[in-house]
Design a protein around this nucleic acid. Structure first.
Length: 891
RNA sequence: GGGCGAUUAGCUCAGUUGGUUAGAGCGUCUGCCUUACAAGCAGAAGGUCAUCCGUUCGAGCCGGAUAUCGCCCACCA
């Protein structure tokens, strides 16, 4: 890619390099790992984006986190597989396709199943293409050769296999039970797909007269008066003294005239309402249970489409909402409405269409979850699976401990059609993996497949193993299962994560992943959830166009921790862009730096080189440690701080200080220049590797430039070894001191840096013009004699053996004392000394207080006590010297 | 009705084995177009870490309570 490199003399334009860089990576083919039995692979199965639309910032967050982990592990040398794919998102996609068709005045019923599915596949193709493009732009290093789709052939076979096995094991059963019905989507949905919202409603009090004596009656309270048409009993608590005599009596249902019994059932809360509850077994889960216990008839008055049925009598044909008003009015006229009161209660809505969910009895396929939930709980309890952050462990276990059976069938067309056939001739039911062609019972050929499809999460639950080839025993499956990390949003902990654990354990005998890393939700700048209706959705592509991918990625991980929501704003991403820009500029400085009369021979490393190399290793260790703990934001910050705050702000400035040192050939300065050039590139090279997982594009671009002067480097930074900071860097490049840290260099340089800072402060506080040099006595500061040029350039000071004549000022730098010749006037100097003295006295008294705490010296660790003593002695010495200085000044 | 999270600088947030001087980005103020970068450089101001009680020699961090905001779960009509 040499010929296409961005111009180093020009500002960085991320957009210009991103596409070709991704293509370059793809050409190298290293996103496809090689199976190496001697190494444990690092595997992430991508949370497959729904093909419902383009990607949003939530995807940018997921993919950024996963890409950081994958790139890091790839650099560590692990066979790293990130397996991509997309999800058919049954109900969501069908809903959108139906809406799109509605624009053209078409309905799925009019088109028929086959044609409708054709449209859905077209939709899938379109959005799949968009999603793939967006993912590539984001830089995701997934293995495209293994890409899957939940409805492709292999995964469909996995779904059927699972269904059949669970059926054979008796875990899947079919039956008429009460489920959550969405009249808009015209399908049953699972408990999880119902979103409860508190709504202001009313509580209507109705009077049901005693059949034998209409002058007496029983009052019931309801939030859903329209369902009274389907009432088949009134229930009271068995111990409720008020109603003892009513139990077993018959009431006459107003408007309908039906005779209904009063039954006693413990499910009734005597304290609520009137203590008597109308029972509508066809339209309420509790009533349904009561109905079962008392063998009450069920009368369906609301149909599948939310419209009143024939059983609703004169209300037939009315929408359920309209029916409510009509029924209330009729009850009022009949004198059966006693009163109403305002009432807040939770109303279930369809996650997809937002329609009010209707509890409804229908024939569905169900999955018994209890036998699956136990092992899933155990896997987390015994630590085979770790959830990050830990607090979600409890959420996970609470949910699994209170699971109801899962309604897995859907009255939808888009999805995996249930592999169950009924023989039209003999009525035999076939549950099998392959399409049924002939009835084994009667030989009949008229087999009808169950028209329903499976819940989209049924197939997602198999993702970690179905994508690796299961039910075939493939090499991929043997090597890459179980996956390592499941990274996803906490919002689908139940929908997806828990179900993957259940299925993985059941079918593979091993948990599908070791670590669950849950990220938070991306919210807008005001903390609101992003939604299309609010119009606050941010398109990641726009952001990448505007700021660059690296900037977007960085803004996704910095200043955030696992499980916490992320408030997104353009200001955050600007900071990322600035850093990418910094990186680019630092790179071009390092790459273009030529010391005067550059000579290639090795030169000894001096203090600044030893220092920055030691600091680089420290940063690498820190970043590694943080990544190991999944503290990605902190890791990015540590890398950022090292690069900007130490390499750029200090080391590069130190290097520049030498260029100005016009020294004759063969002099020390000449030597320094050579060592500096080498070190500048060494640390750049290490930094590119360190930052690459976070900012793949700039680092790759600079890497390619770096390779022009160091051709032995790996052809991509993505393939370079991870800088662990443990020892000397590889590739034979100069590394300075071997080992972990160069304590002596760090200490000496810290003293110099403090000195320079003290001088800069002094200049700023005293308003000393940049043109004016400070005259400073050399000697007192460790490292100063040999590195005086640093002080001269970075603090704009001129070093002399003995300062003066004229007024002298002594600045305290740690235990040392820096003497500068200055024109500072007496009042200003006095003020400075007094302020410093006050501070030193303050510090001393704080240290004294700590040491004086009863028990401190005895109970605190020796190191802490020693530190406090050191603090005290330094503060006291400062105090004494400042007092002396003050006395001298005044006296 | 349960459970969880948040509360730290003007704003957005870090702060993961409790050590006395709590950090970053953005914003603000001062001075600099110093030939890598003004998307920058050098400085500065700004916090009784929501409140109360406790544990401890020592608490932003551990325990308890309270307040405010947010989220999740839940078949009381």
């Amino acid at each position: 890619m040499t010929e296409q490199l961005a111009d180093l003399t020009r500002p960085y334009e991320p957009q210009a390099v991103e596409r070709r860089t991704y293509a370059f990576w793809e050409r190298l083919g290293y996103f496809t790992p090689t199976i190496d039995p001697t190494r444990r692979p690092f595997v992430i199965a991508i949370p497959p984006p729904n093909i419902t639309g383009a990607l949003h910032t939530g995807h940018a967050l997921t993919f950024t986190i996963e890409d950081i982990l994958i790139r890091w592990h790839r650099m560590l040398g692990d066979p790293a597989l990130w397996l991509p794919g997309t999800d058919h998102a049954a109900i969501a996609t069908e809903y959108l396709v139906k809406q799109a068709l509605a624009q053209e005045g078409l309905t799925k019923e009019a088109l028929g199943r086959r044609t409708f599915l054709g449209h859905a596949w077209e939709w899938k193709a379109q959005y799949h293409g968009i999603i793939v493009e967006q993912m590539k732009r984001l830089g995701v290093s997934v293995d495209w050769s293994r890409e899957r789709f939940t409805m492709d052939e292999g995964l469909s076979r996995a779904v059927r296999t699972v269904f059949v096995r669970l059926y054979d094991e008796g875990l899947i059963y079919r039956g008429e039970y009460m489920g959550n019905w969405c009249p808009g989507c015209k399908t049953v949905v699972s408990d999880l797909e119902v979103q409860h919202r508190d709504e202001e409603g009313e509580l209507w009090y109705l009077r049901y007269p005693l059949a034998a004596d209409p002058s007496r009656g029983i009052e019931v309270a309801t939030t859903r008066p329209e369902t009274m048409l389907g009432d088949t009993a009134v229930a009271v608590h068995p111990d409720d003294a008020r109603y003892k005599d009513w139990i077993g009596q018959e009431l006459e249902l107003p408007l309908v005239g039906r005779r209904i019994p009063v039954v006693a059932d413990a499910a009734v809360d005597p304290a609520f309402g009137t203590g008597a509850v109308k029972v509508t077994p066809a339209h309420d889960p509790t009533d349904y249970a009561i109905g079962k216990r008392h063998e009450l008839p069920t009368i369906e008055v609301i149909g599948a489409d939310g419209v009143m049925t024939a059983a609703a009598g004169r209300f037939q044909g009315l929408d359920r909402m309209a029916a409510r008003a009509e029924v209330v009015e009729a009850l009022r006229q009949a004198g059966a409405l006693i009163r109403t009161e305002p009432y807040n209660h939770a109303v279930g809505h369809c996650q997809r269409s937002d329609d009010v969910i209707e509890p409804r009895i229908s024939l569905q396929w169900w999955l018994k979850v209890e036998p699956l939930a136990g092992p899933a709980l155990e896997a987390v309890r015994d630590g085979r699976i770790t959830i990050i952050p830990d607090r979600f462990t409890k959420v996970y276990t609470n949910w699994l401990e209170n699971l109801h059976d899962w309604a897995i069938s859907r009255q939808l067309w888009w999805g995996h059609q249930i592999p169950v056939w009924t023989c039209a001739d003999c009525g035999r039911v076939l549950v099998q993996i392959d399409n049924a062609t002939a009835c084994p019972g009667c030989g009949g050929k008229r087999l009808e497949q169950d028209p329903d499809t499976l819940d989209t999460w049924f197939s997602s639950a198999l993702w970690p193993f179905s994508t690796l080839g299961w039910p075939e025993q493939t090499a991929d499956l043997a090597y890459f299962y179980p996956t390592t990390v499941m990274e996803t949003g906490y919002d689908i902990l139940f929908f997806w994560v828990a179900r993957m654990v259940m299925m993985g354990l059941h079918f593979m005998g091993e948990a599908p992943f070791r670590t669950v890393y849950l990220h938070g939700m991306v919210r807008d700048a005001f903390g609101r959830k992003m939604s299309k209706t609010k119009g606050n959705v941010v398109d990641p592509l726009d952001l990448m166009d505007q700021f660059g991918t690296d900037a977007l990625r960085l803004s996704m991980v910095t200043g955030n921790s696992p499980g916490n929501d992320l408030r997104f704003s353009e200001q955050r991403i600007e900071a990322g862009r600035n850093f990418a820009n910094k990186l680019w500029n630092a790179g071009r400085f390092a790459l273009s730096y030529r010391p005067p009369e550059h000579s290639p021979e090795a030169a000894p490393l001096e203090l600044p080189e030893r220092w920055i190399l030691s600091r680089a290793r420290a940063a690498q260790r820190e970043v590694t440690r943080l990544l190991e703990q999944f503290q990605l934001g902190e890791a990015a910050r540590a890398a950022h701080d090292f690069f900007w705050g130490e390499y750029c702000d200090w080391y590069m400035e130190m290097v520049k200080a030498r260029v100005l040192d016009a020294a004759p050939a063969g002099s020390a300065a000449r030597q320094r220049g050579t060592a500096a050039q080498r070190t500048l590139l060494d640390v750049l090279e290490q930094s590119l590797r360190l930052l690459h997982p976070f900012m793949p594009y700039v680092t790759e671009e600079l890497w390619q430039h770096l390779r022009q002067c160091r051709p032995s480097l790996p052809e991509s930074v993505a393939l370079a070894p991870w800088p662990s900071g443990a020892s000397a860097p590889p590739n034979g490049s100069a590394s300075g001191v071997a080992g972990d840290g160069d304590g002596a260099a760090e200490e000496a340089m810290a003293a110099l840096i403090t000195t320079i800072t003290v001088l800069r402060n002094y200049r700023a506080e005293h308003g000393i013009e940049p043109t004016q040099k400070l005259t400073v006595a050399a000697g007192a500061i460790p490292g100063l004699p040999n590195n005086g040029y640093l002080l001269e350039v970075l603090a704009n000071a001129s070093l002399v053996a003995t300062p003066g004549p004229g007024p002298l000022v002594k600045l305290l730098v740690g235990t040392a004392e820096l003497t500068i010749a200055t024109s500072s006037d007496l009042p200003a100097e006095r003020a400075r000394l007094e302020a410093a003295l006050a501070e030193a006295a303050n510090e001393a008294s704080r240290a004294r207080a700590q040491l004086g705490q009863p028990g401190f010296v005895d109970r605190a660790p020796a190191a802490v006590v020693a530190k406090a003593r050191e603090r005290l002695s330094l503060a006291e010495s400062h105090q004494r010297r400042l007092e002396a200085q003050l006395a001298e000044l005044l006296g």
